[in-house]
């Protein structure tokens, strides 16, 4: 941990400073120096934290996963819109218990978040790697129960699963 201190410090400072540049929108010397000092200070206070799962987070492949998730969100939003606007309200709510094979803690968080973000399914509880998911009808939970979303995430986190 000690050896990675400077690298982590520089990375944190740069990330915070980028955030400052976007949010402040003022590029005169006073504000730049102020932002840089603040970024250094916050980064210095926050380095040396215990190992978090997000330190080996595969950001690159995560960016490739996002468009797929976005398409799924649009599709299931339209499906849910049809359900709600249908006068007979043809919903079949059910609870699904599902044991995931993902091991990386970050992967489990992303899977839970993706499920909730997709309209029609919502994560009720996560225990270790057992998910309790509420789905609004038969087709809503399919992505999840067939392991389609999980396979994508196994690829993102480069895990060996026999899915």
């Amino acid at each position: 941990m000690k050896s990675s201190f400077p690298k982590q410090f520089v990375a944190n400072t740069l990330a915070l400073f980028c955030g400052w540049l976007v949010l402040s929108g003022k590029y005169d010397n006073f504000h730049l120096v102020l932002g840089f000092t603040a970024s250094c200070g916050v980064a210095w206070l926050n380095t040396g934290f215990p190992h978090s799962p997000f330190q080996q987070f595969p950001w690159g492949r995560m960016v490739l996963y996002c468009p797929w998730l976005f398409l799924r969100i649009v599709e299931s939003s339209l499906h849910l819109t049809k359900l709600i606007l249908n006068p007979s309200l043809p919903i079949k709510p059910r609870l699904i218990t599902y044991r995931s094979q993902l091991k990386h803690r970050g992967a489990i968080v992303v899977l839970g978040n993706s499920v909730t973000l997709t309209p029609g399914t919502i994560t009720v509880e996560i225990n270790g790697n057992t998910f309790l998911v509420h789905a609004i009808d038969e087709s809503a939970g399919n992505d999840f129960t067939t392991g389609r979303m999980e396979r994508k995430l196994a690829w993102v986190f480069q895990e060996d699963t026999n899915l």
């Binding site: 969100i73 649009v74 939003s77 849910l80 819109t81 709600i84 919903i91 709510p93 909730t116 973000l117 997709t118 309209p119 029609g120 399914t121 919502i122 009720v124 509420h134 609004i136």
Partner: peptide
Amino acid sequence: VFSRSHAVSLTDSL
């Protein structure tokens, strides 16, 4: 509550 939260998640997404 459970199915209503689905409707709410429609707000967040699209």
